[in-house]
C-alpha cells in the first residue's frame, strides 16, 4: 500500500492495561507505544534515548516481557498489559529494587534509569538470585553514559541480598 494511503487511514482506537489501570486512546498507525505512553497518557518516565532500539531507556514490560517501547507500535499493543517505571512503587512505597538502587548510588543523571529499573525488575522476576555475571549480562542491552555500570550492578545485587527477600516487586 502506498504511504499516502497508510497515512490517510483514520486513528485507531486501542485499549490496554497500564500499571494496573484500564487505559485507552486513539492512535495513528505510526504512533509508537513509547510516544503513546508519553504524549497521550502523560507517563513521561519512559525515556527515549535513541529511538532505534539500542539504548534501552524506553524499556517497559509488555505482558511481563521487557520490551523496547520505541520499536513497538501502540496499535500492536492493543489488549496488552504494560508496566512502566511509574508502576514500580506501590502505595507510595518504593520497590525493593528502587530502594536498593537508591542506597547503592546506582545512577547519576537519571535519564537511563527507567529502562534499567524495568530490565532489572524483569530479571529478578525470572531469577531472584542472579550472580554478578548474570546481572551484567541481563543489563548489557541498556546503555548508561554516566556510571560505568558498577553501581547499577551493585544495586541489583543488593536488591536480592539478605534474608528478607519478598516477592512484592517481582511478579
Amino acid at each position: 500500500m502506498p504511504e499516502s494511503e497508510l497515512g490517510a487511514r483514520g486513528p485507531l482506537p486501542i485499549r490496554l492495561e497500564v500499571n494496573g489501570e484500564e487505559r485507552g486512546g486513539d492512535v495513528e498507525a505510526r504512533t509508537t507505544l513509547a510516544d503513546f505512553l508519553r504524549d497521550q497518557l502523560g507517563l513521561t518516565g519512559t525515556h527515549l534515548g535513541c529511538e532505534h532500539g539500542v539504548c534501552g531507556a524506553c524499556t517497559v514490560l509488555l505482558d511481563s516481557l521487557p520490551t523496547r517501547s520505541c520499536l513497538v507500535l501502540a496499535a500492536s499493543a492493543d489488549g496488552c498489559r504494560v508496566e512502566t517505571v511509574e508502576g514500580l512503587a506501590r502505595d507510595g512505597q518504593l520497590s525493593r529494587l528502587q530502594r536498593a538502587m537508591w542506597d547503592s548510588h546506582s545512577f547519576q543523571c537519571g535519564f537511563c534509569t527507567p529502562g534499567f529499573l524495568i530490565q532489572a525488575t524483569a530479571l529478578l522476576a525470572e531469577n531472584p538470585t542472579p550472580t554478578e555475571a548474570e546481572v551484567r549480562h541481563a543489563l548489557s542491552g541498556n546503555l548508561c553514559r554516566c556510571t560505568g555500570y558498577e553501581s547499577i550492578v551493585r544495586g541489583v545485587l543488593a536488591a536480592c541480598a539478605g534474608p528478607e527477600r519478598s516477592g512484592a516487586e517481582s511478579k
Binding site: R38, W102, H105
Partner: peptide, 21 residues
C-alpha cells in the same frame, strides 16, 4: 559520608523532568 542522593527519589520513580517531558 556517602549519604543517599536527594535527587534519586524522583528519578527512580519516573518523575524526573527532562525537556522532552
Amino acid at each position: 559520608a556517602s549519604v543517599r542522593r536527594v535527587e534519586d527519589e524522583r528519578l527512580l520513580t519516573g518523575r524526573g523532568t527532562f525537556v522532552a517531558d
